[in-house]
């Protein structure tokens, strides 16, 4: 199954060229990429991640607001009892903040030096680790499905 990724662009900064390049690179790596456009609130990002049932949410932040936006996203995902969607970040994020973000559950930060290939490899690794191969995850719970289908 293709890996499904949400590329989200929160906050007030109006630059999404990077996010669009990322979206294309992930597509060319065979992923299904949902792109949401600019000026997303954490609530919009979380709702989109849930409705699209993505494997990974990639949040691009250039404005320096990462220490407010990531905690909000992680809290809202927890409130909605979502524990199987990985969150990663990219953009301009200070080294010193990376451990703090990982502490609240952000899986990986891809800084400006990261290549698109680093990003592809990172996402594939995270999905493999999470075991959130969507087919396998659902297969574990479909014991009753065959029964229902044969009714």
């Amino acid at each position: 199954m293709p890996i499904k990724v949400l590329v989200a662009k929160p906050g007030l900064d109006g630059h999404d060229r990077g996010a669009k390049i990322v979206a294309r690179a992930l597509r060319d790596a065979g992923m299904e990429v949902v792109y949401t456009g600019l000026h997303q609130t954490p609530e919009m990002i979380v709702n989109a991640a849930i409705q699209e049932d993505v494997d990974v949410v990639g949040v691009s932040i250039l404005s320096g607001a990462h220490m407010t936006i990531f905690p909000k996203i992680m809290t809202m995902l927890a409130e909605r009892e979502v524990d199987d969607i990985a969150v990663v970040g990219g953009g301009v994020i200070q080294e010193a903040d990376i451990p703090k973000l990982k502490e609240i559950g952000v899986r990986e930060i891809f800084n400006a030096e990261a290549s698109t290939q680093d990003l592809i490899d990172g996402i594939e690794r995270i999905v493999a680790q999470t075991g959130r191969d969507r087919s396998r995850r659902e297969a574990a719970g479909t014991a009753g499905a065959g029964q229902a289908a044969s009714r």
Binding site: P2, G30, M31, V33, N47, E52
Partner: peptide
Amino acid sequence: SSPFTHGAVLGDRVRMQRHAG
């Protein structure tokens, strides 16, 4: 979907953001 890589960019949501919440 791309017939070559099977990847896709799904951009329809961009136009529907007002209803996200």
